[in-house]
Write a protein that binds this DNA or RNA. Sequence first.
DNA 1: GCTTCGAAGTTTAGAGTTGAAGTCTTCAGG
DNA 2: CCTGAAGACTTCAACTCTAAACTTCGAAGC
Lengths: 192, 192
Amino acid sequence: MSNGPCDTSGMADTPGPAEPSLEEQIAAYQREFQGLDPQVERVVSALSRLNRRMNVAYGRQTTELGISNAEWEVLKALVLAGDPYRLGPGDLAKRLGLTPAAMTHRIDRMVTEGLVTRERDETNRVRVIVGITEEGRDKWLDGLRMATVFEEELLQDLSGEERGQLGEMLTRLLRRVEEAQPDAGGRLSDLD
Amino acid sequence: MSNGPCDTSGMADTPGPAEPSLEEQIAAYQREFQGLDPQVERVVSALSRLNRRMNVAYGRQTTELGISNAEWEVLKALVLAGDPYRLGPGDLAKRLGLTPAAMTHRIDRMVTEGLVTRERDETNRVRVIVGITEEGRDKWLDGLRMATVFEEELLQDLSGEERGQLGEMLTRLLRRVEEAQPDAGGRLSDLD
DNA sequence: GCTTCGAAGTTTAGAGTTGAAGTCTTCAGG
DNA sequence: CCTGAAGACTTCAACTCTAAACTTCGAAGC
């Protein structure tokens, strides 16, 4: 299963200078560019690294399920859509932040893998309806269970109060950037 | 300039059900799967969405410079590496978290665009050395300046104390996931 | 009813990445 | 020396995504 952007094998990882640590990177920024607020830099860099690590973790989990992160995202969108658990390719593309063309191919794969179904709408034959199969729903649930374990582990060092503060601050940041960027914004590895 | 995973054009974005808001998504999770801690869910989802938005913003900035996020990352790695500002393709691949093959192609492009140079090491002719050009360094600096403006805007709602708390908590999370995941971890949209 | 416009999906060409295989260089033995 | 193994980079085929052209169907407008 070629696993989208989540495989970690095949990379150069023998000896030599690896990726600099967060501290090293902040120091290097200070060295090369005066006038950079280290506090801001720390928040932004940590955010970005954290996200990368989380996606690696999710990638390992979905690989274990025999699917890719990309496919799990489709399943998630269908489940979270609610009751009939069916959406058109266009809707899916919008929710996942990719082009309709990409959606077409993704659905092709997932249909052959038995994760979703594709049928034409009888009342409007231009429309296509994608539905989740039982197997698809099971995979989604398995993935979610693994994710919650990982997430609880990730946050284990934070007290309940800290978790609340963190969530509140992140939500505030998100609100700020969403109003500056009203459009849905392009793809780029979510999985939330 | 086809801009890696950062273009926002061409996506389906007309009417209809767009991406659910963070609140809607958390509610949907609660509905479909009992036993999910909403506090954890909020942190994780906000983190992920925030990162996506940030990458969209960075993508717009680098597009304005006539390069891609991917290329800017290579420039960043070279600058942050310090004094001779030169690294081998293998090192670069490790630092950016992609395969050597991808690095080869990326360097190809960047050489023809005049952003970096590629020469063979005289003392060990298996080795290749990639260096940054003056134009490359200028682009990096321009990108960094734009990024700092955006980042300051992003954090404008947080007091100095809050920024410190946020950075500290994120660093703690990062430390936790890094020790659980000692390898550098695969690609997946950084840019920090 | 026929035509035109728009919306929804699919198809096609090209960019970028991965994983595996291949090339070339260096180094350690025999 | 010559050989074999390991390392560094490149090449190749397959895959996924984007952007743009294309196809089809439905809704108006005349």
